[in-house]
Design a protein around this nucleic acid. Structure first.
Length: 519
DNA sequence: GATCCTTTGAAGTTC
DNA sequence: GAACTTCAAAGGATC
């Protein structure tokens, strides 16, 4: 718990408070003990805040043991500058990741055993990183805090935080001035909320006189102002590393391009009735992109690293690797990204109260038109039933993984594919490092145990962990991106060639040349 | 130039 | 409420 952390930091010299970031906070609070203590302390802290807020408003006294938040409101743009109120801020914002079972989950146990297995054979590695040697995730199967059942979450510190109904700010006890301060707590030092927007009632954030050179690249993510000169405000900047100029320019130009298509309207403009029918006009609408989810943030951060390690550039292959690595992250590490994503969403909501993901549906006209699944009625057959209907609720261990994960039913899709073409469905695997290969082997070998273990779980991390590794039997891709097509022996970027061990299916012919160097 | 590929997660729509 | 769809990032491949 941040505040607990800050307290201890303060008592131990407090140096690290100045460099407090979410990672630190989360990592420090990883154990259940801390979480328990944190929850208690948070409640305590919150009552203290209320007490202090009330008394401070009368007397002007600073919050005991803390720096005066009021007196240090200097806005900081473009960098993650530790705020004196960081501890307090984080105490409210960054509650420990409330894993109701303290992180213990049967799957990781099983997987741990697998992880201990020696890697089979030597590898020609193009990813020397070895950053996946850590223990398997203890969080798999545990949903992010905002997805927890309210009963489970009851009493946990995060519970009262959000959602903020109607976009109202969750500090009703604070004066308007303090609400503004509190807003800065939520978006550490990065997103000054204008007075007009302090209550998040303002339809658009106020334009701020900030030079682009001082802005984090992430500020451009939702920023029509900076991109298109529409004068509409700032976007989030939640991924700390300060951008290089090239990065900045890249983001700037990207959003500029996005908005150059615009017609000069406000980012909150909804497509009018008349324009809805015109793709051309629709693409001219200013495009406010969706806030990034946790995995997207992770990908954005880690992509360059994987690219460097693996000498792969093809995003589909990189994403497969990142997907596996994502599941190998510790819960604290994932929690960091969930928290960032939550902040992104929150800020996005603040900046564009009227925006809805629906607004972006169909953006870019006819793109993303995918093959429609043929209806079961079209193909018929009992084997086309989805697992739920096929096996019933009491036999969930028979369900395919996607069904347990509430995605498309794999068996259903397999049946569809078989009915449609009868072709085999090879997965597109592209392990990169030895650890990636291990992860793959682990997931394969432990799938049965994991399946059982996962029956009682329902988290984006847990179920998807294996389902994402499973063969994408649904709809064999019509083509394989470079580096991912296991059949493409001529593909220099095929990971099958890059890592001879990574050839996952014995039935498939292996490339005649085992390893080639790609540089 | 538009779309696909590939991943996870959020949020939308459909039934 | 379950199931399904779309979009967010990325950049090479493909049409």
């Amino acid at each position: 718990m941040p505040h607990a952390h800050s307290s201890s930091a303060a008592s131990s010299g407090g140096d690290d408070l100045g460099s407090t970031d979410e990672i630190k906070v989360f990592k420090d609070e990883g154990d259940g003990e801390d979480e328990k203590r944190s929850s208690e302390n948070l409640l305590e802290e919150k009552s203290s805040l209320i007490d202090w807020t009330e008394s401070e408003e009368k007397s002007g006294e600073p919050y005991p043991g803390k720096l005066s938040v009021k007196s240090d409101l200097s806005p900081v743009f473009g960098k993650f500058e530790p705020h004196p109120a960081a501890g307090f801020n984080m105490g409210y914002l960054v509650a420990p990741y409330p894993y109701p079972n303290g992180g213990a989950h049967p799957l990781p146990v099983a997987m741990t055993g697998k992880m201990g297995l020696p890697a089979g054979g030597s590898l020609s590695l193009f990813c020397p990183g070895g950053d996946l040697g850590q223990p398997p995730p203890a969080h798999m199967g545990i949903p992010p805090p905002y997805q927890l059942d309210s009963k489970l979450a009851a009493g946990l510190a995060r519970t009262p935080m959000y959602p903020f109904p109607g976009g109202t700010y969750p500090y009703p006890m604070l004066s308007p001035e303090m609400s503004q301060v509190a807003a800065s707590w939520h978006t550490p030092s990065m997103y000054p909320i204008s007075s007009a927007a302090s209550g998040f009632r303002s339809p658009y954030p106020t334009s701020l006189p900030i030079s682009s050179s001082s802005l984090s690249s992430e500020l451009y993510r939702f920023s029509p102002t900076l991109g298109g000169g529409l004068g509409l405000g700032l976007g989030p900047a939640l991924v700390p590393p300060p951008p290089s100029k090239a990065d900045l320019d890249s983001h700037h130009s990207r959003y500029a391009r996005s908005l150059e298509k615009g017609n000069g309207g406000t980012p909150n403009d909804k497509p009018s009735e008349s324009s809805a029918n015109s793709n051309k006009e629709q693409t001219k609408k200013p495009h406010i992109k969706k806030p990034l989810n946790a995995f997207m943030l992770y990908m954005k951060e880690m992509r360059a690293k994987v690219v460097a390690e693996c000498t792969l550039k093809e995003s589909a292959a990189i994403n497969q690797i990142l997907g596996r690595r994502w599941h190998s992250l510790s819960r604290e590490e994932q929690a960091k990204y969930y928290e960032k994503a939550r902040q992104e969403r929150q800020l996005h909501m603040q900046l564009y109260p009227g925006w809805s993901a629906r607004d972006n549906y169909g953006y870019g006209s006819k793109k993303k038109k995918r093959k429609k699944d043929r209806s079961p009625a079209e193909l018929g057959g009992n084997n086309l039933k989805k697992c739920r209907a096929r096996f019933g609720l009491d036999q969930q261990n028979q369900w395919c993984k996607p069904c347990r994960r509430k995605k498309k039913c794999m068996r259903y899709m397999e049946a569809l594919a078989a009915a449609a073409s009868g072709g085999d469905n090879l997965p597109t695997q592209s392990p990169c490092s030895e650890e990636d290969v291990k992860l793959e082997e682990m997931s394969d070998a432990s799938s049965d145990e994991a399946d059982t273990a996962l029956n009682s779980a329902s988290s984006p991390g847990g179920l998807s962990a294996l389902s994402s590794l499973a063969s994408p039997a649904s709809e064999p891709p019509a083509r394989h991106p470079v580096g991912t097509n296991p059949r493409d022996v001529n593909n220099p970027l095929s990971v099958g060639q890059l890592t001879s061990q990574s050839w996952p299916r014995a039935a498939q012919p292996r490339p005649t040349h085992e390893v080639i160097s790609v540089s």
